[in-house]
Computed example of a mutant assay.
Amino acid sequence: MKKFVVLYNAPQSAQAQMAESSPEAAQEGMKAWMEWAQRAGDGIVDMGNPLGTGKEVSATGTADTSSHVAGYGILQAEDMDGALALLDRHPHLMMPDASIQVYEALDIPGL
């Protein structure tokens, strides 16, 4: 099995989404995520979490991040097609302008 890092992108930060969501809407959203998790089953290694604001560190210092990454997760599958299949009908994609990036986690040679 290979591991895949999943980045959930949205035009609005996860903090803003949660602050603007009514308790009923939040509960309905969690229900959709739990239904997806049940479908994905053992393909989920780590459900992940929403992400707050971040910092970008470079050789010249730190700055606020400008990406739209709102959360992450880790999946496992035989290959990229299998990982993509796990994301079929994912509730994150119900949000306008949302997207999901999927990256295969590569083994480090010699470790």
Rank of each mutant, 00 (worst) to 15 (best):
M1A: 11
K3T: 11
V5K: 01
V5G: 01
V5F: 01
V6G: 01
L7K: 00
Y8G: 05
A10F: 06
P11T: 03
P11H: 05
Q12K: 11
Q12C: 01
Q15I: 14
Q15P: 00
A16T: 04
Q17F: 05
M18E: 12
M18G: 01
A19E: 13
S21L: 00
S22K: 07
S22L: 06
P23G: 12
E24A: 14
A26R: 11
Q27Y: 10
E28V: 04
E28W: 02
G29W: 15
G29F: 08
G29R: 10
G29L: 09
K31T: 14
K31M: 15
K31I: 12
A32L: 13
A32K: 13
A32Y: 09
W33R: 03
W33K: 10
M34R: 14
M34F: 13
M34C: 08
M34L: 11
A37M: 15
A37D: 07
A37Q: 12
R39I: 01
R39K: 13
G41P: 07
G41S: 02
D42A: 15
D42K: 12
G43K: 04
I44T: 11
I44A: 10
V45H: 04
V45M: 08
V45A: 06
V45P: 00
D46E: 09
M47N: 07
N49V: 04
L51K: 02
L51S: 09
L51C: 07
L51V: 11
G52C: 03
G52L: 08
G52V: 05
T53G: 15
E56R: 14
E56K: 15
V57W: 07
S58L: 09
S58C: 10
T62S: 08
T65S: 10
T65P: 02
T65W: 03
S67T: 15
S67Y: 12
V69W: 07
A70Q: 07
A70K: 03
A70M: 01
Y72I: 14
Y72S: 10
G73F: 08
I74M: 08
I74P: 08
I74K: 03
L75S: 02
Q76Y: 02
Q76M: 07
Q76G: 03
Q76F: 04
Q76C: 05
A77G: 10
A77H: 08
A77N: 09
A77Y: 09
A77L: 14
E78G: 10
M80G: 08
M80W: 07
D81I: 01
D81Y: 02
D81H: 04
G82I: 02
A83V: 09
L84Q: 15
A85Q: 06
A85M: 00
A85E: 11
D88W: 08
D88R: 14
D88I: 11
R89I: 06
R89W: 01
R89C: 06
H90S: 12
P91F: 08
M94D: 15
M94H: 13
M95W: 10
M95H: 11
P96L: 09
P96K: 14
D97Y: 05
S99G: 03
S99L: 07
S99M: 03
S99P: 05
I100P: 05
Q101K: 15
Y103F: 09
E104V: 10
E104A: 15
A105R: 04
L106W: 05
L106A: 13
I108W: 15
P109N: 09
P109L: 11
L111I: 13
L111P: 00
L111F: 10
L111A: 14
